[in-house]
């Protein structure tokens, strides 16, 4: 167990290292770093001073080490737009994005598992066919388009839910959250549903396939032969086997939800780090972009690591040997 953990940790560190190198090459070696890192409105003197300050006159490997050291200490430069440290800006916006991502993942899991089970248990029923047709549509539609339709129907036509903003927030453990106030919840509803739909469609398909596979297994028939009630056969024997892929995918998808939050946040003017990224790209605020990329990569690596650990907890076959590649 610890051996597996150590190996995974080492891999994670390697991925982080590789990504920092890629970002560095993208910023320093491909483009002109002066354009990217120095405020375009600065005059000649400022530029010269900035070059010296940033060490851009040094050899590349030395610059990389400086970049790495800065990244490790959380210093990724200051925003051109506000002058605030880039990392601080991102961290400020992160709770809003995480709240949105977690709530949408929750929606996807809470709805996706029962719907997938239903479709898997009665594959020929009308409900199952409707669910599967819905999941194909959910897969095909781009997030932004579904979001637009949600706004049109629920905000413009019906007037039930607000189309933009985060609403009232209250502090929970020192972090401002929306889901504990009625107004915040109303603001959270549309973006969270919007972001959930793709993963809902994905989980429905996954659970359906898993259910159908499990139902055909001898161990399910054997569980029935023991005279177990159907609720226990499905709820324990089938579901526990499905949970392994579901948790893996749901965990890995949490990363892509954070990435796709960029679209949803822009659409619903949700003040998260995704919207900050788009704003920064439009303003050519490069230090913030670099900070966003490195932070999101770090989150991805941590999520992958966590999923691996949970995976090994759920599947006893992996837990001891760890031999399955």
């Amino acid at each position: 167990m610890t051996g597996v953990l150590l190996r995974r940790l080492l891999q994670s560190v390697l991925v982080l290292f590789a990504m920092s190198l890629l970002v560095f090459v993208g910023v320093y070696a491909i483009g002109n770093p002066v354009d990217i890192l120095v405020n375009p409105n600065a005059d000649q003197q400022d530029i010269a001073r900035a070059i010296a300050e940033l060490g851009l006159d040094r050899p590349l490997h030395e610059q990389y080490l400086r970049f790495l050291a800065g990244a490790l200490s959380g210093d990724l430069g200051r925003s051109f737009a506000t002058g605030a440290p880039a990392m601080e800006l991102i961290l400020e916006r992160m709770p809003a994005t995480l709240e949105l991502a977690c709530v949408s993942m929750l929606i996807a899991v809470v709805l996706g598992i029962p719907l997938g089970l239903l479709a898997g248990l009665r594959p020929k029923s009308r409900a199952a066919r409707a669910i599967m047709a819905g999941s194909i549509v959910g897969f095909s539609l781009p997030t932004f388009w579904v979001g637009l339709m949600l706004i049109m129907v629920f905000s413009v036509w019906l007037g039930w839910l607000p189309p933009t903003g985060r609403g009232d927030t209250v502090p929970l453990l020192g972090i401002e959250v929306s889901f504990l106030t009625p107004d915040g919840l109303a603001h959270l509803a549309l973006p969270a549903i919007n972001l959930a739909l793709f993963n809902l469609a994905l989980l429905v398909r996954l659970v359906r396939a898993g259910t159908r596979e499990a139902l055909a297994q001898d161990y399910v028939r054997y569980a029935r032969a023991k005279g177990l009630p159907e609720s226990r056969v499905i709820g324990v024997h089938v579901l526990k086997n499905i949970m392994v892929p579901v948790v893996t995918v749901a965990g890995l998808e949490l990363g892509s939800v954070i990435a796709f939050a960029v679209v949803t946040e822009t659409l619903f003017a949700w003040p998260g780090m995704g919207k900050l990224l788009i704003d920064s790209i439009n303003q050519l605020d490069r230090p913030v972009i670099v900070a966003y990329v490195l932070l999101v990569v770090l989150m991805f690596v941590l999520i992958n690591l966590a999923v691996d650990l949970v995976y090994s907890l759920l599947d006893p076959r992996v837990r001891r040997g760890g031999a399955r590649a």
């Binding site: 991925v15 590789a18 993208g26 910023v27 491909i30 483009g31 990363g255 892509s256 990435a259 796709f260 960029v262 679209v263 990224l277 790209i281 972009i289 990329v293 999101v296 990569v297 991805f300 992958n304």
Partner: peptide
């Protein structure tokens, strides 16, 4: 490495650069 990051993120960052 590439497939471990969502396409939209990679594309966004590329276009930003």
């Amino acid at each position: 490495l590439q497939l471990s990051f969502p396409a939209i993120l990679v594309a966004l960052v590329l276009l930003a650069v």
